[in-house]
């Protein structure tokens, strides 16, 4: 009974100081934890970029050394798994969303780096234009043209394309819980990677993600369905970009 009475009365100066002290320590601990986590994330990013560098180096070596037998192409299923994993491990941005975070586009003068994944508009063999998933090989500043490789059948098909045919993919996920404005909203027209393929197609956002690890649910334009759209399919943030053209193909 005694203690209850005490707690109802204003705390004594002693306990007030003590409480303040505890709060300060807790805050410092939280900040320390934060910095450790950030540090760990930096390390992960560093490891990833090293791996990426190595991968590019290996790829270049593969292209330029003629003596080696041609590298065997990956089985498609494996490629698809890799693409899914790359989407899943895309880092989540904390804080004010910069360009290339979620739906936020790159700045107009942005140049994609070697090895970056992009959506590239290429002419297919039959003459049709198609948005494919590609990887940047180089950028020529004098001609303003990119050299990109089709992600499928690595190194076999290389395209030289002007800037406007290239859309860089997001490099961070936007957090739907804190930055919903950095995501595409319902019914917005986008280009989305059709599941289990390496091609982007026009689609409408059906539902944006609710949590950081969620995918978009999109409706692909598909004339084989009566209403002109596919049933909702899931596509990761990594593979949804803004659709520039508004005219239908």
């Amino acid at each position: 009974m005694q203690t209850e009475n005490k707690s109802q009365s204003p705390p004594s100066p002693y306990y007030r100081t003590k409480l303040r002290g505890l709060y300060t320590t807790a805050r410092a601990d939280a900040e320390a934890e934060c910095s450790i986590l950030r540090h760990a994330l930096d390390k992960i990013a560093e490891i990833k970029s090293l791996l990426e560098e190595r991968r590019i180096a290996a790829k270049m070596a593969g292209v330029y050394s003629d003596s080696d037998p041609p590298r065997k192409t990956m089985r498609r299923g494996v490629l698809m798994t890799l693409l899914q994993q790359s989407a899943m491990t895309l880092p989540l941005w904390i804080g004010n969303p910069p360009p290339l975070c979620g739906a936020t586009p790159a700045s107009s003068d942005y140049v994609a780096k070697q090895g970056d994944k992009v959506a590239a508009r290429v002419k297919a063999v039959d003459g049709d234009e198609q948005w494919i998933l590609a990887e940047v090989v180089s950028y020529n500043h004098s001609t303003n043209k990119y050299e990109v490789d089709d992600i499928d059948e690595e190194g076999k098909e290389r395209h030289t394309l002007s800037r406007r045919r290239i859309i860089p993919l997001p490099q961070w996920k936007a957090n739907p819980e804190t930055d919903p404005e950095a995501l595409f909203s319902k019914d917005q027209l986008v280009l989305a990677l059709y599941p289990q393929t390496t091609c982007f197609y026009r689609a409408l956002i059906h539902t944006p993600p609710h949590r950081p690890q969620d995918d978009y649910s999109v409706l692909f334009e598909d004339t084989s369905y009566a209403d002109g759209y596919s049933p909702p399919l899931n596509v990761a943030q990594r593979y949804v970009v803004a659709c520039k053209e508004n005219k239908k193909k």
Partner: peptide, 8 residues
């Protein structure tokens, strides 16, 4: 179905 292909 197309969106579940190449998964074995």
């Amino acid at each position: 179905t197309s969106n579940e292909q190449v998964k074995g």
